[in-house]
Structures are given as structure tokens and as C-alpha cells.
């Protein structure tokens, strides 16, 4: 067993566990969007960042991916952590005001919509990749993937045509945290 602290509280976890897994086990809340216990962690939404001090340096890491280490000091709610989460939620709520989940998260961090509006407001997809990972790792269909790059990144099928690999199981609809898949689903299954 590995002993370390989360918010100055002594905790233990097994080798190979992530900080997020140990925190959940001990009932310590860390917000997540792109995390789901059924698929491999991806570290894209960065909402789960925590500040860690390994005795050499203090830095922010994604708790969904960072392995636990003996003696690590973890802070889940430091000023730096709060700043990152505030900005992530600020930008998400500006770009995807239609998502209830994001609205609630933003509200809990005191974030309101700003004057910066995206031209993609009706788009609910935050590109967390949960649908892609679930379709690959859980269903095994690999009907969708993430295409393009940067601000043009999108969940897409091959040649953007309805996917013959899609078995219309609805797993992607279930794991999608924002409801974006409801907009996309008909285009994927054809």
C-alpha cells in the first residue's frame, strides 16, 4: 500500500491506482467531465487537476492519470487548481451554454457567462472523447473517432459518412456528459 496525503489527510492507495481513484475511495470530491470508470482515462478536460508536491516541485497534474506516489502531498482545491477549473468552466459555459451539466458545474464555481461568445453555441460537444473511447474499448465497434485538429477538432466517422461499423447500441449516448451525442447520433448510425 502507498501512503500519501490529500488535503493534509492521510490516505492509502494501491500501487498503480491514480490520485482520482484513491480520492473517490475516500469520498473526496474531484470534479470530472472526460472521466468514466469503464474506459481508459484520457486527461483531456483537465477539470480534475490537482496540485501535487513530491518534495522536489509543486505542479498541477490530471488526477485521473497521475499514479499515486509514497509521500505525495495532494491539494484538490488550491488557488492554482481553482483558477484552472474556473477558466475551463468559463470557456465551456461560453461556448456550450446549452449543456445543463456544464451550467451546473459552472454555477458551483461561481462562473457566469461572459461577453465572449462562440459561433458554435448550439454545439454541445466538449471533445472529451468518452464516446470514442466507449465505442472502441467497451463496444469494440470503433465507429467514431476524433478528427481534425485544434479548434476544428470534431467527433467524426470515416469520410463523415454514416458509419457501417455503428451497431446503434447507444453506449455513446449514455456516456456523453453534455448531451452532444443526441445531436450527432443520427448522422453516425445513418
Amino acid at each position: 500500500m502507498i501512503s500519501f496525503t490529500i488535503n493534509d489527510r492521510e490516505v492509502t492507495g494501491q500501487e498503480g491506482w491514480t490520485i482520482l481513484e484513491v480520492a473517490k475511495w475516500h469520498g473526496i470530491d474531484i470534479p470530472t467531465l472526460c472521466y468514466h470508470g469503464a474506459v481508459e482515462p484520457y486527461g483531456a478536460c483537465r477539470l480534475c487537476v490537482v496540485e501535487v508536491d513530491d518534495g522536489q516541485q509543486r505542479r498541477l497534474v490530471a488526477s485521473c492519470l497521475h499514479p499515486v506516489q509514497e509521500g505525495l502531498k495532494v491539494q484538490t482545491d488550491s488557488e492554482r487548481v481553482k483558477n484552472v477549473r474556473r477558466w475551463i468552466l468559463q470557456m465551456m459555459v461560453d461556448e456550450h451554454p446549452g449543456s445543463q451539466r456544464i451550467k451546473e458545474l459552472a454555477k458551483s464555481y461561481g462562473v457566469k457567462e461572459s461577453r465572449f461568445k462562440s459561433d458554435r453555441v448550439e454545439d454541445l460537444c466538449i471533445l472529451c472523447g468518452l464516446c470514442v473511447r466507449a465505442c472502441d474499448e467497451v463496444v469494440g465497434a470503433r465507429a467514431i473517432s476524433l478528427g481534425n485538429r485544434g479548434v476544428r477538432k470534431e467527433v467524426a466517422t470515416t469520410h463523415r459518412l454514416p458509419s457501417p461499423e455503428c451497431v446503434a447500441c447507444g453506449t455513446c449516448l449514455y456516456v456523453c456528459p453534455t448531451g452532444a451525442m443526441e445531436q450527432l447520433f443520427d448522422r453516425i448510425r445513418g
Binding site: C45, L47, W87, M92, F116, L127, G150, V151, R152, K153
Partner: peptide
């Protein structure tokens, strides 16, 4: 940098665009 961001993580994908704006 905004153009070259891979778009995987939110701070880089959305944040660089916002800073640019």
C-alpha cells in the same frame, strides 16, 4: 500556437483561442 494546438485538452484548445481574442 492556436493553429498548431492538437485540441486534445481544454486549456490549450479553448484557452489559446480566448487569449487570442
Amino acid at each position: 500556437l492556436m493553429d498548431e494546438s492538437c485540441g486534445k485538452c481544454v486549456p490549450c484548445r479553448m484557452g489559446l483561442e480566448r487569449m487570442h481574442a
